[in-house]
Design a protein around this nucleic acid. Structure first.
Length: 314
DNA sequence: ACCGGTCCCTGTTAGC
DNA sequence: TGCTAACAGGGACCGG
């Protein structure tokens, strides 16, 4: 599934390959993929057709392309609008070369944008999504409360309305680790729940939460209000490290005209110390990794490096 | 305001 | 072999 580093790889690809293009036409093959759109599928098409893709911006796992009017048309009103995308767990954005696009169609193609004037010469931007947890919509931009850039990839101090309540992610230059440490410690919950809470910080999913906690040697159930600041900081720094390393590996594995996100990057083949490794030896101490049910999914820990807190003592 | 549980969706895999 | 059930998971949403 696309984690933050994969989404950043996609953002970078869109920045290079389709920013500057005008949307000639839009096809929606699966209404559910635009379920968040005001006005439904017809509204989606109407608000996108004829607009120019002006930038590629990301915060956490949300990705958006601010929209401009095509050359010769009047200026946009207000803070503008953007094409917002969330890839969910199986979404892909595929930039199609006219030489191979032809009648090529993926079985899970949900939305197709027809482009004109892309710097890469690409003809289509395809949204492919097997499990349809992802979605696209055209939304209004609103100013950021702190006046800093809304996300990575643009200096525009604005974010899509659905992103406004999401915290910055650890790869954002404006990410304030000290402030996040303090906010985490004000919560009364477990550390993993806090890491996954997009309101505190964004972009950390189940996999990276487990990897970060393994690196920081913290059990997922440790109480946030009883952790020392240095321990919370260690978890945040570990999350940043894991994502930075993954980005370095994933960013080079995709073809220039095929911006791909399918969870099969090199990272998953060799980078994971704990996640998905039940029964396999901890890379640090050799103890078999343990799997626990947690929040209707799984958590992987080393029972020695990450001892479970005992009630009333931690 | 905070916190935790449930649901959305589909393809793959495990188990009977 | 064929069926069912579990599983993967971010975030909207809802009730306490």
């Amino acid at each position: 599934m696309p984690e933050l580093p994969e989404v950043e790889t996609v953002r970078d690809g869109l920045d290079r390959l389709v920013v500057g293009a005008v949307v000639r036409d839009v096809e929606v093959f699966r209404d559910y993929s635009v379920r968040r759109q005001d006005g439904g599928p017809a509204g989606f098409v109407d608000q996108l057709r004829g607009r120019r893709l002006d930038a590629a911006v990301r915060r956490g796992k949300f990705l958006w392309l601010p929209l401009g009017a095509p050359a010769g048309a009047g200026a946009a009103s207000g803070d503008g609008a953007a094409l917002l995308a969330h890839l969910g767990m199986s979404g892909q954005l595929l930039v199609r070369d006219p030489g191979v696009a032809g009648d090529w169609a993926h079985p899970h193609l949900r939305v197709r944008l027809h482009l004109r004037g892309a710097p890469s010469g690409a003809e289509y931007l395809d949204f492919v999504d097997q499990r349809t947890f992802g979605h696209l919509s055209v939304v209004d931009l609103e100013p950021t409360p702190d006046g800093a850039a809304g996300g990575l990839g643009s200096d525009l101090p604005a974010v899509p309305e659905p992103v406004a309540h999401i915290g910055r992610d650890p790869l954002d230059p404006a990410f304030d680790a000290d402030a996040v440490v303090a906010a985490v410690r004000r919560r009364r919950t477990g550390i993993k729940r806090a890491l996954l809470d997009q309101g505190l910080l964004s972009g950390v999913g189940n996999i990276y939460a487990d990897e970060a906690l393994w690196r920081a040697r913290l059990h997922f159930a440790r109480a946030t209000d009883r952790l020392r600041p240095v321990e919370v900081r260690r978890a945040l720094d570990a999350a940043t490290e894991v994502m930075t390393e993954s980005l370095a590996q994933g960013g080079t594995s995709f073809d220039a005209l095929y911006v791909n996100v399918n969870g099969e990057s090199g990272y998953f083949a060799r980078g994971l110390a704990a996640y998905g490794r039940e029964g396999e030896p901890c890379p640090r101490c050799g103890t078999p990794i343990r799997r626990d049910a947690f929040m209707n999914r799984s958590s992987y820990t080393c029972p020695v490096c990450q001892p479970r807190p005992r009630a009333g003592r931690w």
